[in-house]
């Protein structure tokens, strides 16, 4: 059966909200939980020690805990924090930047969505360095995944982002601060006001992107609930679900019931559409524009 993994929280939630969220998630039917700040180093409501403490609790609840690293490393202080995380982690680490892979080589690690593995040679090279699991890059489709699964080295798990707003880009600039006329160095943590990010619409009112500090996400939530049979047929082991501020337990419950065969995928998709902040897309996996949504069997 497909395993469910809860991705790291992409947003800046208050400390108590984070703790409450993981209390709830400890009871949710996910096998793997990724913890840590992956977007902005200025968000420090939880220190590494706090994440480790959270991780111990979740591990005691039977979850496999993975610590995720920052995606864009710029300052020396960020590199120092990364070195500390990679050196001290009692859990497996998910690398979201090549700097983390440099620090983790020789140990088991996960290559996250920020690592560009587009072919079998890259996959094999990382496998020789300690890769245990990799996440399919967001813009790769079913056909590329099929090739990569056929050619992947033994002992590697494959994870696919099955739910949530897509991490599409990272920048030096903070777009949430910019929307409020503030520079990043004086951001006043405005991203704390947007637990699901700040919606960017076109000039004709179409929801388009979602600003989350230095990260740009899709406005639509990627939903591969209809693709579970295709993913299983390709021996994908793990589905990643990205946290959102509301309704995450319901989202997980729907994926859980569909993977167990207890609920029809079409019915689940109808309910997931209600739980998405804006709407659904699955275009990347279908081999088209990521924002597209196609229903029906994969050809």
């Amino acid at each position: 059966m497909l395993k469910l993994a809860l991705g790291p929280i992409p947003y800046f939630w208050p400390r108590n909200e984070v703790l409450r969220f993981y209390e709830e998630m400890a009871q949710a039917p996910v096998e793997i939980i990724y913890l840590g700040e992956t977007v902005c180093a200025k968000r420090r409501q939880l220190a590494l020690e706090d994440w480790l403490m959270l991780g111990e609790g979740l591990a005691a609840a039977g979850k496999q805990v993975v610590l995720s690293t920052l995606t864009l490393i710029e300052a020396e202080s960020e590199l120092g924090a990364l070195r500390r995380l990679c050196a001290d982690a009692p859990f497996m680490v998910e690398a979201n930047d090549m700097a983390a892979i440099q620090l983790l080589q020789g140990r088991d690690f996960v290559a996250g969505t920020g690592i560009n593995v587009y072919n079998h040679l890259a996959l094999s090279r990382l496998a020789r360095l300690g890769l245990r699991r990799w996440v399919l890059p967001v813009e790769l489709d079913h056909a590329a995944l099929a090739d990569l699964q056929r050619l992947r080295p033994a002992g590697i798990e494959t994870e696919v982002l099955a739910w949530g707003r897509l991490p599409l880009a990272h920048a030096a600039r903070c777009f949430t601060a910019r929307a409020h006329g503030l520079p990043k160095d004086d951001c006043r943590f405005r991203c704390r006001d947007y637990p699901d990010g700040l919606l960017l619409k076109t000039r004709e009112g179409q929801p388009f992107l979602n600003l989350n500090g230095i990260q740009t996400q899709s406005a639509l939530s990627q939903c591969l609930i209809g693709e579970l049979p295709a993913l299983e047929a390709l021996d994908v082991e793990v589905l990643r679900l990205i946290p959102q501020a509301q309704g995450m337990s319901e989202v997980i419950g729907l994926f859980d019931r569909v993977r167990r065969g207890d609920l029809d995928a079409a019915e689940a998709r109808r309910r997931l559409a209600q739980l998405a902040p804006i709407g659904l897309c699955n275009g990347f996996y279908r081999g088209g524009p990521g924002m597209a949504m196609t229903v029906g069997a994969l050809t």
Partner: peptide, 21 residues
């Protein structure tokens, strides 16, 4: 390029084609 290069999928999100692919 405003976004960190090589890890921007905005173009493929809209068109299916990106600098990477």
């Amino acid at each position: 390029c405003v976004m960190v290069e090589g890890r921007c999928y905005l173009s493929s999100y809209v068109t299916g084609e990106s600098p990477n692919t």
